[in-house]
């Protein structure tokens, strides 16, 4: 029964990855969207929509792939409304995002009302050959469920796409100087729509992680605020998928430690641990702002939150 310190840390980190994964999907979605210049504060609502959709589909079809795809699709459709309002109609991104969260929370609660007491089979962990035999790392990262592996792939793909391809350069340019993009003939509309909707789909998959893996049931307000954590982590991650991964697992570890430290002799206040990721986020925001002001490295997309008016600005 006695576990060594290293074993204990491994157990904490295994759970940190699980708790961090839905937040990672959400943060990745936010990174894509905000890189193109559009803030999405609707993530909490989108997560709930994704969670409910995936649960219902899994309940009736038994297929996780269908369930997660449906979550992405429906969350993407809901994000389309956000895109419509703040890209085409140029309304406030903040207000539209908040409305999306309220909409998502309300509609999922309403439609999910009759699902009390219903459960689906949880997604089982898969041991990856070779990789899982790496000491420590293997146990933490490669004995997880399929959605966790999908999140690794997503990080790699988004990273590559954003920083090593032409499309990625264009997306990032939309967040920096859309008027320049426009002047060289790129469609700001198309790129922003695509980025925001794909981002929303990622958030929906993050929501699906709750009923697929963490709880196996739907309950009103299932995500309990994780969407807001993702909003904060986009800043913490300096709009970068790799750092998003680090941030999400850090937050997951904070939850896991809050719980497991109570069972051993180390006494750190659970309130402190609950607050810790948010302090880091505020510090990250300060650093990002200072760096931006010094014009050395612009980490925050320069046109973030601004609607694009063709030929009217500058």
């Amino acid at each position: 029964m006695e576990t060594t310190a290293i074993e204990w840390i491994v157990i904490v980190l295994v759970s940190a990855v699980k708790m961090g994964t839905p937040i990672l999907f959400g943060t990745l979605g936010g990174v894509i969207s905000e890189r193109a210049g559009v803030i999405n504060l609707g993530m909490e609502g989108l997560m709930l929509i994704g969670a409910l959709t995936s649960f219902v589909v899994k309940l009736y079809t038994g297929s996780t792939i269908l369930a997660v795809s449906a979550a992405a699709f429906v969350a993407g459709a809901a994000t389309f409304l956000h895109a419509l309002v703040c890209i085409s109609m140029r309304a406030s991104q903040i207000a539209s995002g908040l409305a999306l969260t309220m909409f998502g929370t309300g509609v999922s609660g309403l439609l999910g009302d009759s699902l009390t007491g219903k459960t689906v089979a949880p997604l089982m962990d898969i041991k990856l050959p070779i990789l899982s035999s790496i000491p420590l790392i293997g146990k933490i990262f490669f004995m997880q469920d399929a959605l966790v592996y999908f999140s690794y792939i997503s990080v790699a793909v988004i990273w590559y796409l954003l920083f090593y391809t032409r499309i990625g350069l264009n997306i990032r340019s939309m967040g920096e100087a859309p008027e320049v993009c426009d002047s060289i003939g790129l469609s700001v509309m198309k790129y922003r729509y695509a980025a925001v909707i794909i981002g929303g789909m990622m958030v929906g998959i993050g929501g699906a992680y709750f009923p697929m893996v963490l709880t196996s049931f739907w309950v009103d307000n299932l995500t309990a605020g994780r969407g807001w954590i993702a909003v904060a982590l986009v800043i913490f991650a300096f709009w970068h998928p790799g750092k998003a991964m680090f941030g999400a697992y850090l937050f997951g570890a904070a939850i896991s430690l809050q719980l497991r430290l109570q069972l051993i002799d180390i006494k750190i206040s659970p309130y402190f641990l609950a607050m810790f990721p948010f302090i880091l986020t505020i510090i990250a925001l300060i650093i990002a702002t200072i760096r931006n002001n010094k014009k050395k490295i612009a980490v925050m997309p320069a046109s973030l939150g601004e609607a694009f008016f063709r030929g009217e600005k500058h």
Partner: peptide, 26 residues
């Protein structure tokens, strides 16, 4: 009887993780 506080009335995924922590502890 071992107790873990989650400091919330309602946070399903955290409640699940707390149960896992307790079961890991025997």
């Amino acid at each position: 009887v071992k107790v873990i506080w989650v400091n919330a009335w309602f946070d399903p995924s955290k409640e699940g993780a707390a149960a896992d922590s307790l079961m890991d502890d025997g």
